[in-house]
Design a protein around this nucleic acid. Structure first.
Lengths: 222, 222, 222, 222
DNA sequence: GATGAATGAGGTTTCATTCAT
DNA sequence: AATGAATGAAACCTCATTCAT
């Protein structure tokens, strides 16, 4: 079904970035809304055309295929979604020995929350298609593994060496952290179920859960 | 798209439970495999018919609609999936003051792991459709909220009163726990990515993360 | 474009041969007429459906593809037309030593003329598509080469040995004969241009041209 | 489908002959290659434009219609292809009583072979479209009948009067000769199947077949 | 003259559903 | 109960042609 290699597409994408026609822009916006709302497979191109105020043929003139339209929406998101954060925070982390793991977590959460607030609909599309579309999944899993997984593991190992984190396998911890953050984001941005109106409180709640779990901490009596 | 109310369907289902014709059974089995693999929307009824060794018309004779076939698969799973466990464990919990929260968690994980091992494919279907199909989602969310959410909250409150759990809002804690468990199950059963070959170790890892998070526990120096 | 191997299809076709539904028959008849008249590429399936008094979907239920519909028309024709001629006439030839080459030619022409009168429209389709459709051509050429070409060459060699035919290369002679006969048939059945109203006279004219060319035969003066 | 009268077009064409823009020339060359290779109906204008290094609109600015582009390619070829040969050879023939019919044939074949070697692709286009496109066929048949048919008949009659050719109806003989020559050219230039590497030998083979057929000529023993 | 974005009619194909047998 | 041929709406996509720049 998917005939496009996402990683290839990401590399090529740089060239064709700027020249967004008016109509092309309209099509992309309409497609983003509709795919996010109803899913790629449940959105006919005719409806996209109508929503974009464009003839159906125009979609195919610009994107060739419905598949390729989807890819064109996803790719720039993916390009932005990971490396920036990782690179930057990673350096901060290495250079600043004052930074504790929970600060790292807090930063990460704040940064990604902001990013996803600005890219809510594409995030919805990706999550939905990730579950539904095996080809999308097969394209993305290695990308995530490399860009999120292995970097997070590195960070965890660094903090383990500093004695801040427990000595469970770093991969296991990374997975648990990923579920906690991912679950929170999916709930919030895909299903629109906010944990709390206060964003800062929400972040703190995740940080606290990830750091210390649910157990009541015994206060050391003097 | 979905014309069936799942909760209604669940109630009605009791009547028609036993009389599963040979052909009807075949159809359901074929549909489960195919929906799990490719998703409901990507599976033509013709393919189900072929896989079941049945004429296409037979599907509609038994289920009326493709939608209704999906519902017929999901409903018994949902009926089995929650109440039983909750009821039982809840009573055990109340009657047994020795049971700690982490034992509750451990039991819950073991029990559901067993259940999902036996119902892997239907779990896959539900997860996929939950993300992709808004109507399914709208049907299921209240059901989950009531049957999982509120019961888990009750349990948490009970243990909070016993002084075992921290005093964060119970709803928040329930959500975090749900993400940790749900994420683990989805990874394992939907994407086939096992955290560990040893199931018992996997359970312990979740329990430990949920209970104590990732922070290195300071040993009390004398 | 064409995804079917004609020779393979021919074999498969034997199995499914008999069960020609009413509608399937109607579709094939309509398709033959329309393809012959306007060519395959200029005939929409919608028009075939209308002409056959059938829903458009029915065409695809029976033939899967427009391509496959074309193949389904051509294949049985070729199955009947070529081996029969080759086998039968070839045997007649070998068994009867009285038979002269021009009798062989006469028989061949009579036989094929009769056959093409009954299958005029399919012959039209094949000729048109043979010129227009490279894939059809690539499928058919080896089949013709083997079944017509090489057998005709054998016949020619036999008669050369008997001293009836000149000693040009048999392949060359076969080609010239093929052009003479093929040209005549195409003119008659594809373009509807009859050489003569009297069929027997037409045959004789071909035989005479092939045997003796156009030169005035000098009468031996005593 | 075809809205242009070829004969009319040929007349008009004289006026617009010389002023071939650079772009117009490019378009025509690209179209010739593509039409010859894939056929008119299977060649999108977009592809012609790309191959010509020209915008799609430019094609329509110059030719108005895809149909008209086809006609613009065919017409000058036809103008060159027949009259020249006929006029010239005919005069040679009438003035030179030494010229035998087989010399006429030989000259004709040599001349046209050279011409077609230089116009192979357009010949391919015309043959393909002649078979496929009824309107093209209806346009061309009278043209051929008049320019080739009737002149050839005249030549044949002349030689019949000189006692060189047999007394079959001249029309019939013309048709047989046309098939022999036409078949040879189509095989060679449309299907790329050469009868012989040696062109002169190929010509002789046609001449011999046309003149004397395939029969072994009995040598008169004294 | 030249462009190329835009069009929209029309093409092939898919598929849930119906219904006579 | 079971069949499977038939349906036709709707999906994706192609392409000759137009037109503002």
């Amino acid at each position: 079904m998917l005939k496009y290699n996402l990683l290839e597409a990401m590399k090529e994408q740089t060239k064709t970035d700027v020249k967004l026609t008016d109509k092309k822009q309209k099509i992309m916006e309409a497609a983003i809304s509709l795919f996010a709302e109803k899913g790629y497979g449940n959105t006919p191109t005719s409806e996209i055309a109508k929503a974009a105020g464009v003839a159906e043929g125009t979609i195919f003139r610009h994107f060739g295929t419905k598949d390729h339209l989807l890819v064109s929406l996803i790719v720039p998101f993916l390009k932005d979604s990971i490396p920036l954060m990782a690179e930057e925070l990673f350096e901060k982390l290495l250079s600043n020995h004052e930074l504790r793991f929970e600060d790292f977590l807090r930063n990460l959460l704040r940064d990604r929350l902001l990013f996803l607030k600005q890219n809510k609909e594409i995030f919805q599309i990706i999550v939905k298609e990730f579950f539904y579309n095996e080809e999308i999944r097969h394209e993305l899993i290695p990308y995530f593994a490399e860009n999120i997984g292995s970097r997070l593991v590195q960070v965890i190992r660094t903090f383990q060496e500093r004695g801040e984190l427990s000595d469970q396998p770093a991969e296991t911890m990374a997975r648990h952290i990923f579920f906690s953050i991912g679950g929170t984001f999916i709930f919030k941005f895909v299903f629109g179920l906010n944990g709390s109106q206060d964003e800062e409180a929400e972040i703190e709640s995740v940080v606290r859960f990830v750091m210390d779990g649910v157990r009541k901490i015994k206060e050391d009596s003097p």
